[in-house]
C-alpha cells in the first residue's frame, strides 16, 4: 500500500465514555476527505463497535490502553487500526460469528464484528490470548462529484 497522506495516532483509556470520543475523532479525521453522510455513519459505527470490544471484553473489569491509528490515502481509502493489550480472543473465527457473545448477561448482542464487517470494505482481526487484539478496517470512500 502507498504511503498515507495523513495519519492520526491516538491512545486512550478503555473507559466507556471514550467510545463516543473515539467515533467522534474518527469522524473528524475522515471529514477531511468529504465522505458521504452514509460513509461517515458507517465508519462511526464500526469504530464504536471496535472500541466497545476493548472496553467490554479486552480488559474486563480493569482499564487499559486502547491504540487507534487512522490513515488516509490518496485514492480515498481510509485505514483504521484499533488495538488493545488485553486478554485476547482464543477463537477469532467463532467470536466473529453473528450473535456470538460471551457477555449475554449484560445484553451484549454479539453483533459487533458483523457490524464492522458490514459497514467497512474489509475487516481483519488478529488476536493472541494474553497478548491483545488488533482490528484493522478499510473503507474506500466514493469519488467526489465534479
Amino acid at each position: 500500500m502507498k504511503k498515507s497522506e495523513n495519519t492520526l495516532k491516538l491512545q486512550f483509556d478503555s473507559l466507556s465514555q471514550n467510545e463516543s470520543l473515539a467515533r467522534s475523532l474518527a469522524a473528524a479525521f475522515v471529514m477531511q476527505l468529504n465522505p458521504t453522510v452514509a460513509e461517515l455513519a458507517d465508519i462511526k459505527c464500526a469504530v464504536s463497535e471496535a472500541v466497545t470490544n476493548c472496553t467490554v471484553h479486552a480488559y474486563r473489569d480493569a482499564v487499559g490502553p486502547v491504540y487507534m491509528i487512522m490513515n488516509a490515502y490518496a485514492d480515498r481509502k481510509v485505514k483504521i487500526e484499533i488495538r488493545d493489550a488485553g486478554c485476547g480472543i482464543p477463537d477469532v473465527e467463532t467470536a466473529m460469528q453473528p450473535l456470538y457473545t460471551t457477555d449475554a448477561e449484560n445484553e451484549r448482542s454479539g453483533m459487533g464484528f458483523t457490524v464492522m464487517d458490514s459497514f467497512m470494505d474489509s475487516l481483519t482481526v488478529r488476536s493472541r490470548p494474553g497478548k491483545g487484539t488488533k482490528v484493522i478496517m478499510m473503507k474506500k470512500l466514493s469519488v467526489l462529484p465534479r
Binding site: 459505527c45 463497535e49 466497545t52 445484553e107 451484549r108 448482542s109 454479539g110 453483533m111 459487533g112 457490524v115
Partner: peptide
C-alpha cells in the same frame, strides 16, 4: 446514532 449496544438494549 446507534451501535450494536442498541440492539442488545431493545432485544
Amino acid at each position: 446514532f446507534m451501535d450494536s449496544s442498541g440492539l442488545g438494549l431493545i432485544l
